[in-house]
Design a protein around this nucleic acid. Structure first.
Lengths: 235, 235
DNA sequence: ACAAAAGTGTTCCTCATACACCCATGT
DNA sequence: ACATGGGTGTATGAGGAACACTTTTGT
């Protein structure tokens, strides 16, 4: 009883995107306001159906383009799949969720489709359509975890960036303060995490900061460490 | 153009299981030999279609039961979803892959379905059907990574177990030697990773070892550390 | 000169590693 | 007694946390 003799389609395959960025010292997510049922008027993650000749990564990239106008050079990874029987009242919908990380964008680009798309600070999104609240929660948790051992933080920064820019990413996403001095030493000590351009950027005040680009490292060793974990365990 | 006005099914939703265990100092995976096309005669991961009223976790648990006769108490987690257009010649099949970890089982239980199921050492499985080779590779990589920061290793052990049993899991899955003395101290130092039963187990020779059960910890702090990583980076 | 941000040096402490050594059992 | 595996103590070194201090700019 493993398979029916002929292949019957029993689900609708979709991708949904949790697109995160940092705006004004807050982690933000791109949401659209739904027009039609189900959940009319509710906010939802952008997404849509996978086309017949597309693989999942390509479908996610296409949706990203349609919703935001962003094309290339964006971190994107599959998160997990949500397919509880009742999650869409219209029938069985399997949603493959993607996590995308964008640098601060000028404004939610009004794509062909995305008139109603807007950035919303994480935590102020209210009740989302479908199970998109769960998806968003998992996406944020994944992003927080991956800052530790991967160069994901650089995906939030427009190049070139300063070490202070990068530090701000950690502070905003983790919601903690990070010592600038130790952070500087740490981040410059990890091989190929960031590479200096040789240029400098001057702010209204203070010593100009060296500018960097993303390095080739895909795994940070030693990892950046999220403070507070020992206390959580101890308590 | 986000949605068709009515919901049309465009894919077949399945689950595939990478069930790992340790047999004879080797990491093994449960594979079945396919009878019918596509890929007749090839080895494949066990799996099957998700039923209309099932969520994914439940479908995976049901397949596990049908293939191995194992019911409860097994670690199981969603890995990721594979849905490349050509992966099944019969049409669009979205396979949600699961990673399952089992203690050494007496023998591949001949379930109602699984006459052809057998344990195969990882690395000796040859060319698998569909893209199951990729799935298995991702599953092994996930297992290796999760040993570091989660109590996953205990899922390979039948309770109660000794610290040497647990150490053997790390040695086999990582393919490295671990110092028994330091491992002992480390593992007993992590809060709620393992809890002593008070009993002891005598081997044919040597001092009897204390017996333990899984603790309540879901995250190890500090993490167990996989040796060799600094060298990989440095080289 | 001063404020402010960038970046360096130093101290202390935790923890990983290596390994000498002791403990408890079966033969 | 001795072989064998279980378990403890201790020295060394790498790296994280805290923070004093120096550098480089704009005003």
């Amino acid at each position: 009883m493993r398979e029916p003799s002929s292949l019957r389609y029993n689900a609708s395959l979709t991708v949904d995107l949790a697109i995160l960025t940092i705006r004004g010292e807050r982690l933000n997510v791109l949401l659209i306001e739904r027009g039609k049922p189900p959940f009319p008027g509710r906010l939802a993650l952008p997404g849509g159906f996978v086309l017949d000749d597309e693989d999942l990564d390509r479908a996610a990239a296409r949706e990203l383009w349609e919703e935001t106008g962003i094309g290339e050079g964006l971190h994107m990874e599959q998160l997990r799949t949500y397919a509880a029987p009742g999650r869409d009242p219209r029938g069985r919908v399997a949603s493959v969720a993607y996590l995308a990380i964008a640098p601060d964008l000028p404004v939610p680009v009004a794509g062909t489709d995305a008139a109603a798309a807007r950035w919303v600070p994480v935590g102020e999104e209210g009740e989302l359509a479908f199970d998109h609240g769960d998806i968003l929660g998992d996406a944020v948790e994944r992003a927080r975890a991956k800052l530790e051992y991967s160069p994901l933080a650089t995906a939030f920064c427009r190049e070139p960036f300063t070490i202070a820019d990068l530090r701000s990413v950690y502070e905003v996403v983790w919601g903690v303060r990070v010592d600038p001095r130790n952070f500087h030493r740490k981040v410059t000590g990890v091989d190929d995490f960031i590479v200096a351009t040789g240029e400098r950027r001057s702010l209204p005040t203070g010593r100009p900061a060296a500018l960097y680009r993303r390095g080739r490292a895909e795994l940070l060793y030693p990892p950046m460490m999220r403070p507070g974990r020992p206390d959580e365990v101890a308590s």
